[in-house]
Design a protein around this nucleic acid. Structure first.
Lengths: 242, 242
DNA sequence: GTAGCCTACTGGTCCGACCAGTGCACTAGC
DNA sequence: GCTAGTGCACTGGTCGGACCAGTAGGCTAC
């Protein structure tokens, strides 16, 4: 047996209301002072519950707002937070993160090659064009354009879980190597080579050759990040290239 | 600009101390009354901060404990929670979850086939033996034995992120279809066929044929879950079988 | 009709209090 | 002497009240 805390009851009930759709994103929770009478608890307890819900990314409150806390649409923010924590305390290596991306991203591309519409193919081509246009606008712009491309592909692949996970890990990787990248030589050359790889991937997608597109994408990612991965750990990445 | 809340300052500082290793798992935080003087905030604020840290799975507190909150070793509990939420509010289909597992699990197996030691191969064989022994002990026992097998494989694959994500999604899938499974006919036959597939995978791993082991594992998972996936969504799973 | 103020709320923070637990030192009994 | 029991000093959980800065919307004065 375990004693159930008062604030946990509040968390569970509000959470259930949100996840079951009784409360939809954009709607407002009652004010803290109203919640305390609804649940017959003190405001401290209500506030602790709201803090938990906020930490889980379900609601957000703003001081002075005449309405209560706002129910948020799902964001992978909480997922991002826990994966970032995982990366720090479990000391995930860059190799592991890149490997994870190689696996999931190539899977998304494999699926995208099957499911893509002509419209989506156009989106991908525009995304790569955006990458080319961003080469001279610095690292951040290029990184954003690259993210946009992978977002289109992942969305086309049709698996939201893959889409979200790849995006979360991508941003972690970007943050992890951003300082290394800043001072690296030949960045522009690396960007252009990366764009070339992306175009090859698109060509394979256009041709409907999913396995080829997936393999090319793994090679592209390996090529782009290998320099930042300690040589001793590159082996596990190369295992995915055959 | 945005006003930084007092409790956020506390959260960030404690979090930093934990993630940087200044505070190690098993160690204790100062008591709430001591934290309030250290950070010059009220106890309410300290408690809200602790609630956030607890929601992130970093600390745990117990009433009456003469010490402060305990710093926890990392658990994927927070990750699990956010993925479960994702599965509910974004209405992830069973097909997407199974597809995710097919991708990551087969990747782990591909890696395991390269990296496994003789000892680890033995572990896998014992795990499958455990599965066979559990067939007559009910669904939960079989599911646990299956989880143990995949845990060994994922650990052998060497990518902690893949390991954790597959385990989290596996448990979500299990919970999602547990009620469907309970009344399903031919369960024992399905279990035995699954065990057969697992043995084929192990044989391929023993032979060092990673790609074959990976493909077999995808087939095995498809075979095991296809009946519970609506026919209209099976197509995207079959895309991974070639 | 509009610009500006006023008010009634909101959430953020603080304070003080009480309760039920827990661990430990101390004590009473053997 | 040692042990069993008791009390105390802490812990976290909860409550109630208070004040502040901010916001929105209605009201008033122009």
């Amino acid at each position: 047996m375990r004693a159930v805390r008062a604030y946990e009851r509040v968390v569970e009930q509000v959470e259930e209301a949100i996840e079951s759709g009784t409360l939809s994103p954009g709607e407002r929770l009652p004010s803290e002072r109203e919640l305390m009478v609804q649940f017959s608890v003190s405001r401290s307890t209500v506030r602790e519950a709201l803090r938990v819900l906020q930490a889980r990314g379900l609601v957000q409150s703003r001081p002075g707002d005449p309405n209560g806390a706002e129910v948020l649409p799902f964001t992978p923010a909480a997922l991002h937070k826990s994966m970032t924590t995982l990366a720090r305390v479990e000391e995930l290596s860059l190799a592991e993160l890149v490997q994870f991306r190689m696996v999931l991203d190539s899977a998304a591309i494999l699926l995208a090659a099957r499911l893509r519409t002509a419209e989506q193919l156009g989106e991908m081509e525009r995304a790569v064009a955006g990458m080319r246009a961003s080469v001279e606008r610095g690292e951040d712009a290029f990184s954003a354009a690259d993210a946009a491309f992978h977002e289109v592909v992942a969305r086309t692949g049709g698996n939201k879980l893959i889409q979200i996970c790849t995006d979360v890990v991508r941003s972690i990787v970007v943050r992890l190597i951003s300082e290394k990248i800043a001072g690296a030589p030949d960045r522009e050359q690396l960007m252009r080579r990366s764009i070339g790889h992306h175009e090859e991937v698109i060509a394979a997608i256009r041709a409907g050759d999913g396995p080829r597109a997936a393999r090319l994408s793994r090679e592209a990612m390996y090529d782009y990040y290998a320099d930042y991965v300690p040589a001793a750990e590159r082996g596990v990445l190369e295992a995915l290239l055959d």
